[in-house]
């Protein structure tokens, strides 16, 4: 290896070192630490008790109906909200892409939900649907005394609506980026061949956008999976609306049961890992970052 290549390498590593160390310090180390905590009976409120308990905490979590209910809720929220976002995001992306006029207006207005603090968005939706302060129950076709947060399904619906509202713009922008990479000539050629708009969308747009769609889905799925803020503000987990993040927070922060809470944390991490792996399989070779290996 030449002297130059070696020094270039050294420089590169030095430049990357601070960021890598920071990322390891705040993610890798805590996860290892969480594994260590999760095999102990550690409750800060009972400082005299403690010690190694093996997989007891994991058994407690995995045999608890509550854990499976929260996993079910989280998956439900994720699947429903990401599906709706994909459809809405695609429509908004197409509108922005095929703008006759008002492109700037659409872009500006959809960026507002993106920029808004999630907690603020959650409060806006909560107050809108709350029977005491809200305006939704005063709308036509809505029962005046509908208690939106009093029932599991309706509470989850409002939570999902708030999530969709907040994150569709992000989805739309990612999809728009994919749309702009498609060669216009293809559409012209298809038009010549007599393909109508619907056919063009399914035959050209969708297949060519597969990578962009997968990237957008991956990011949003994992983002939706950590849903916390909206639930915390709107129901605090009552009516069986807890997500895995809320469950973890309750064990760790409300109960200070670091052992049990860490077991929940580790299990959430494993779930996220599984989802990511599933997507990587779906990507095939087009994983972001993989091209760098060559």
């Amino acid at each position: 290896m030449s002297e130059r290549a070696r020094s270039e390498r050294k420089l590169a590593w030095m430049l990357c070192a601070p960021a890598v160390i920071a990322m390891l310090l705040v993610t890798a180390y805590p996860i290892i630490y969480a594994v260590v905590l999760s095999v102990q009976a550690l409750d800060l409120r009972f400082p005299d008790e403690g010690g190694f308990v093996g997989i007891d905490n994991y058994v407690t979590v995995l045999t608890s109906p509550l854990w499976w209910q929260t996993v079910g809720n989280t998956v439900f929220i994720t699947v429903v909200s990401v599906s709706i976002e994909l459809v809405l995001g695609m429509i908004i992306a197409l509108i922005m892409h095929r703008a006759i006029f008002g492109r700037g207006l659409v872009r500006t207005s959809v960026l507002i939900p993106y920029g808004i603090v999630t907690v603020v968005a959650a409060f806006a939706w909560f107050y809108a649907f709350d029977p005491e302060t809200g305006f939704v129950n005063a709308l036509p076709f809505v029962a005046e005394d509908m208690a939106w947060f009093g029932d599991r399904f309706s509470a989850l619906s409002v939570i999902i609506a708030a999530e969709v509202w907040k994150t569709t713009p992000f989805m739309a922008l990612l999809l728009l980026a994919g749309l702009t990479t498609i060669d216009e000539g293809l559409y012209e050629a298809a038009k010549m061949d007599g393909a109508n708009a619907v056919q063009r969308f399914f035959r050209i747009t969708l297949p060519l956008m597969k990578p962009a769609i997968l990237v957008a889905l991956l990011f949003r799925t994992l983002d939706a999976f950590r849903v916390f803020d909206s639930i915390f503000v709107m129901t605090a987990g009552s009516q069986g609306t807890e997500s895995v993040s809320i469950l973890g927070y309750n064990q760790l922060i409300s109960r200070l049961n670091l052992g049990l809470g860490s077991a929940v944390s580790v299990l959430i991490f494993v779930l996220v890992l599984l989802i990511a792996l599933a997507f990587v399989k779906g990507f095939g070779t087009s994983v972001p970052g993989r091209e760098e290996e060559e």
Partner: peptide, 18 residues
Amino acid sequence: ATDITTSTEDSARLGFES
């Protein structure tokens, strides 16, 4: 009250005041 399953001190107050 219809919102009984989400009722709190404050929602009770607001309901009564209305």
